[in-house]
């Protein structure tokens, strides 16, 4: 079910209900973005600070970007400022996480041809896949368990439809890293769907 488009007119007036709906709609995503930049322990605190900033700045929101891009930028700035203050924190290098089997070479012969090609899917439409409650839960759980930065890239791109350039700015990582992390996340989900279609579980 599609959510309503944020009610800009009332948001700019700092209307309570409009603001509450905005928090309902974006709080999860904001925590994910904060966590990707500053780590788990401070993510909630930064999220709270970001919402205060959003609330204060709403009357001056000019609509030069979409409101969600604007909110993601605010939380990103809060998290980056905090990161500079907390010099003991080092950003985790997630390029070293486990690589999905499709991408680590194990499904290919030495000449680069498939040794273990993708299996056929019985359930072949997005609607049918999502109607399958068990499979839907598998997908949600897999997204939940993605490493922090990868999850954030994936969520911003494939769920929130932000551009690659916006994602680079929000998370302060290079275009090539964004693309690598995004691809790994998508392929990991695809493997879960493969597994479900082959075995009936995941």
């Amino acid at each position: 079910m599609m959510q309503d488009i944020p009610d800009l007119e009332n948001l700019k007036k700092q209307d309570h209900q409009a603001f509450q709906r905005l928090v309902e709609k974006y709080n999860r995503q904001i925590v994910v973005v904060a966590r990707a930049i500053i780590g788990d322990s401070l993510a909630e605190e930064v999220t709270q600070e970001a919402w205060v900033s959003v609330y204060r700045a709403l009357p001056s929101f000019e609509g030069r970007s979409s409101i969600k891009t604007w909110i993601f930028t605010i939380v990103s700035n809060e998290a980056k400022t905090r990161l500079r203050k907390e010099s003991r924190l080092v950003r985790i290098n997630e390029m070293e996480e486990v690589i999905p089997a499709y991408l680590n070479g194990e499904r290919f012969n030495n000449d680069g041809s498939w040794s273990s090609p993708p299996p056929l899917w019985d359930i072949e439409s997005p609607e049918k896949i999502l109607e399958n409650e068990q499979l839907r839960q598998c997908i949600e759980k897999t997204i939940e368990l993605l490493p922090d930065v990868q999850k954030s890239v994936f969520l911003l791109r494939d769920i929130e439809q932000q551009s690659l350039e916006e994602i680079c700015n929000i998370l302060d990582i290079s275009n090539s890293n964004v693309r690598v992390l995004l691809h790994r996340a998508r392929v990991r989900l695809m493997q879960i769907i493969d597994q479900y279609q082959e075995t009936g579980q995941c």
Binding site: V23, P126, E127, L130, I143, D158, R186
Partner: peptide, 18 residues
């Protein structure tokens, strides 16, 4: 094709509220 379907699926999951 499957990667594209995967992406369409997660786009259809954009309705989880806090």
């Amino acid at each position: 094709h499957h990667l594209r379907l995967t992406r369409l699926c997660v786009h259809g999951m954009n309705n989880n509220l806090a």
